[in-house]
Design a protein around this nucleic acid. Structure first.
Lengths: 227, 227
DNA sequence: AAAAACTGTCACCACTTTGTCACCACCCTG
DNA sequence: CAGGGTGGTGACAAAGTGGTGACAGTTTTT
């Protein structure tokens, strides 16, 4: 999993680089807009982390140029007060943004979420929680070894997020961001998606056994020993 | 969850320490700027609570030095009249500030909010008093390990405040402010809320075993050895 | 090209939550 | 003993929240 970091602040670029390396990424860096485009073409990374404030070629332009040719996930780095630029970046096709200062954990989480949403699966093996197994590549959910349901792309993403945090309550907003990204999503859509997922995976959808509702907060996937 | 408290006022540091420990933090303290940096490097806490007025090394400098190397959340403690310093602190990368005097609940809430925003530990540990356990994420109250009641948001807030100060009598006005905020709330509403909470948690609501009334003052959660 | 699937949107229902009110019982003090 | 204050209790309505089904536009598959 290769990540390209574009930032003219050498210190910050180093921090980001270190963080991502520790999370298992292979990291390359560029410090101005032109170099970013060159490196991108030479290395074709899986993920780009892009500061907007760049010498030689503006970050937004870089974003635009890259989007014209590929769907490589882009995460924008912004400082407080550049909200307009963030919005324009997202409109130009960026996948997410992070406001400085950010925590390392935050960064890694966002990076993985974006990759997941783009269909690039960092986790090779299937996800297992209790008797449930999710095959991300095939989007198939198995229970005790045999096929329970064939999931749609969105259902699969939701299920993945829930399984990665099984046993913990995930706030509705968190789920929405994880599934639809920072600019899309809606409470009603989440309701619908949960409904559709339950219809597929719950033996009796009216009394959920796996996908639990926590009123006023969100949802949780129950983690049972083996039942 | 490890918190570093930096304050030269030993009494205040103790109060803060006590409050955060109650909320489930592991707490370490430093009493001057240099010690703060040393302790920070040695212990790498998840959260720093920083008074600006420090001997040996100014609080703002400490803030700056820490920000140069990590994104660990920093909350500034300020006294009234130091507004300029607060602004400079926030510019230097601090995440929030609290003006003295502050309420314990205020402090805990801010701390958790900052950590949440930084993407650290969305899971808050449960509150425990005697045989009662409150799971804040799920808003569930357990007695000796099994589910006693599912609380509503307001009931949960009230229960949280009572458990954080278990064994002490809390004046009605205090409770009202803590639950509904400084602008809302009402004696009648508190009566109602207590009533509804008792209906859920007391075996016999007419003779309260947990949520005791102190006429003319307020309410208290009795802290019993184990009964 | 036709059919099926996927997803966003809407309307509606049921239920919960919460603020408000009225009323009762009790405990003071004068 | 009367009366005011305080706390407990029940009822009720408004607002909010989650679940459900239907439907249309788009994309994907056949």
């Amino acid at each position: 999993m290769k990540a390209l970091i574009v930032d003219d602040d050498l210190v910050l670029a180093d921090v980001v680089s270190f963080t991502l390396r520790r999370a298992g990424f292979q990291v390359i860096t560029a410090h101005d807009g032109q170099a970013a485009l060159d490196t991108w073409q030479a290395e074709s990374p899986d993920l780009i982390i892009l500061d907007l404030n760049l010498p030689k070629l503006d970050g937004l332009s870089v974003c635009q140029r890259i989007r014209q040719q590929t769907d490589t996930p882009i995460i924008i780095l912004s400082v407080r007060g550049e909200d307009d630029d963030v919005v324009r970046g997202l409109e130009l096709g960026a996948d997410d943004y992070i406001a400085k200062p950010f925590s390392p954990r935050q960064l890694v989480a966002r990076a993985q979420a974006v990759l997941r949403r783009a269909g690039i699966t960092p986790t090779t093996g299937p996800l297992v929680v209790g008797e449930l197994t999710l095959d991300l590549a095939r989007r198939e959910l198995h229970r005790s070894g045999h096929l329970l349901a064939q999931l749609t792309p969105l259902e699969c993403r939701l299920m993945e997020v829930l399984m990665l945090n099984s046993g913990h309550v995930l706030p509705a907003d968190t789920l929405i961001t994880q599934v639809w990204g920072p600019s899309g999503g809606d409470r009603t859509m989440l309701k619908q998606l949960v409904h559709r997922l339950r219809a597929k995976i719950e033996p009796d959808p009216s009394t959920p056994a796996y996908l639990e509702t926590v009123p006023g907060v969100g949802y949780a996937l129950v983690r049972r020993p083996s039942a």
